Amino acid sequence: MWLLTAIGSAVLFGLAGWWMKVSQMKGGSSNGLLFGLYVSGTLGFGVHSAVEGTLSGIADWRLLAAGLVIGAGSAWGNALFMKSLEYGPASLTSPLTNMNIALVVGMGIVVYDEPVSAAEWTGIALLLLSVVFVSIRGKEPLTVTQRRWFVLVIAAIFLFAFRNGGLKVTEQLELASAPVLLVGYALSLLWFRQLDAADRNRIVPASSPDPAVASRRGFRWGLLAGLFSYAGLQLYAVALETGKASIAAPVFATNSLVVALGSIVLYRERLTKLQWTAFALTLAGLIVIRM
């Protein structure tokens, strides 16, 4: 059952990524988008915490500290990822930052002694390969000329690992996931609110798009994306509580395939052979894990 929960988390979180892509295609600003995402995500986790009766636990310093770390991993990870795209190709940047999942898998096995069978090892390897392949764009030159790209990518890997692996740590500490994510998303909201405000107040040439309009457009799509982000991460937290982080994490990482599938259906984008291979590897990995 927990594997189905992990698959559901990947689908829902992938839909959040899809609405982010739609915002980009519609000309929405990145900071407006992320501000909107964290607004609705924060509300989602707030309501969830109130309904399940865990909102009072927000006074626990351990929960606040965990929320701070996970929030930093989410907000700064996204910020550094977007910045790294300015200095290097997406075909290298995206799969490398997704390799934060390998750190989470290692944590589950080494720190928490999660048993992994031969079939599960094979499935994990197939899922990790699919995450890499879906991000590669065959026509993009794989050259990096800026040294700072390496620093940005390495930092993003560790920050995303704090987000994706931090929920396993909080589960072991018996901290409720919803208020932890509420704190993390609220802090991220404050961060991107400042960045979005700075964007809207920028002075641009008359021929350039109005930054205030782009901000509002991104914010609206971000509100929708945040609802799916909340639902996906909450399901991911449940999968970590009831199953193995070493398997739930790579399953969750396949959320990027949802964006690729949406691009085929709505934008008529053609996938490369490697991206079609990624779909096949994902199905094979899930089947092998269930064996």
Rank of each mutant, 00 (worst) to 15 (best):
L4K: 08
T5H: 06
A6D: 09
G8K: 10
A10F: 03
V11C: 03
L12V: 10
G14S: 09
S23L: 09
L33R: 04
L34K: 01
G44H: 09
V47C: 02
A50I: 14
E52C: 07
L55G: 10
L55H: 12
S56A: 14
S56V: 12
W61N: 06
W61F: 12
L68E: 00
L68F: 11
A72R: 05
G73M: 00
S74G: 13
L80E: 04
L80N: 03
K83Q: 14
P95M: 01
P95Y: 00
A102G: 01
G106R: 05
G108H: 10
Y112E: 08
S117V: 06
S117F: 05
E120M: 15
A125N: 10
V131R: 02
R137H: 11
P141M: 03
P141Y: 04
V144N: 01
Q146F: 11
R148T: 08
L152R: 04
I154K: 03
K168V: 06
V169Q: 11
E171F: 01
Q172V: 11
V180S: 04
V180N: 00
S188V: 11
L189T: 14
R202M: 13
I203K: 15
R216P: 01
R217C: 02
G222R: 02
G222N: 03
Y230M: 10
G232H: 02
K244S: 10
I247E: 06
A249P: 03
L257F: 01
V259P: 06
S263T: 12
K273F: 04
T277W: 06
T277H: 00
F279R: 08
T282R: 01
